[in-house]
Simulated assay, not measured.
Amino acid sequence: MNERFLSVVQVAELLGTTVRFPRRLVEERRITYVKVGRHVRIPESAVQAYITANTVEPRRRRRLGVAA
């Protein structure tokens, strides 16, 4: 098992958010986490899965065809 477990602070840095955001994800059970005693650790793969699931692709502009 080569999984890397991140602290809430590390996840916040990775996502570019405040610490409150990953704490809220954990509280609402919107991300997988592990309890190690009193500490919360989030698998790096769970953070990547969260990013992938919430990535919004840009819309492609439709080309307007010119009728001849």
Rank of each mutant, 00 (worst) to 15 (best):
M1K: 07
M1Q: 12
N2M: 07
E3K: 02
E3Q: 01
R4S: 04
R4Y: 02
R4H: 04
R4I: 12
F5S: 07
S7W: 00
V8P: 00
V9R: 13
V11D: 02
V11M: 05
V11I: 05
V11R: 05
V11L: 04
A12P: 14
A12E: 01
A12R: 11
L14T: 01
L14I: 08
L15Q: 01
L15W: 09
G16Q: 01
G16M: 04
T17H: 09
T17Y: 09
T18A: 12
T18C: 11
T18W: 01
V19K: 14
V19I: 13
F21N: 12
P22V: 02
P22N: 06
P22F: 00
R23A: 08
R23S: 08
R24V: 02
R24I: 02
R24T: 11
V26N: 04
E27S: 15
E28F: 02
E28C: 12
E28D: 14
R29T: 12
R30N: 13
R30A: 12
R30T: 07
T32G: 07
K35H: 10
K35S: 12
K35R: 15
V36P: 00
V36K: 02
G37Q: 06
G37P: 06
G37N: 00
R41K: 15
R41C: 14
R41V: 11
I42D: 10
I42Q: 02
I42P: 04
I42C: 06
E44M: 07
S45G: 07
S45E: 11
A46V: 05
V47R: 06
V47Q: 04
V47T: 02
Q48C: 05
Q48H: 15
Q48V: 11
Q48I: 08
A49M: 07
Y50Q: 05
Y50P: 05
Y50K: 01
Y50N: 04
I51D: 02
N54L: 10
N54S: 09
N54A: 10
N54V: 01
T55W: 09
T55M: 10
T55D: 03
T55I: 02
V56F: 06
V56C: 00
V56Q: 09
E57R: 14
E57S: 14
E57A: 15
P58Q: 12
P58F: 09
P58E: 10
P58G: 08
P58D: 08
P58T: 06
R59I: 11
R59H: 04
R59L: 14
R59G: 04
R60I: 04
R61I: 01
R61M: 12
R62N: 06
R62M: 08
L64V: 13
L64M: 10
V66L: 10
V66M: 06
V66P: 00
V66A: 12
A67D: 12
A67H: 09
A68W: 01
A68M: 01
A68F: 00
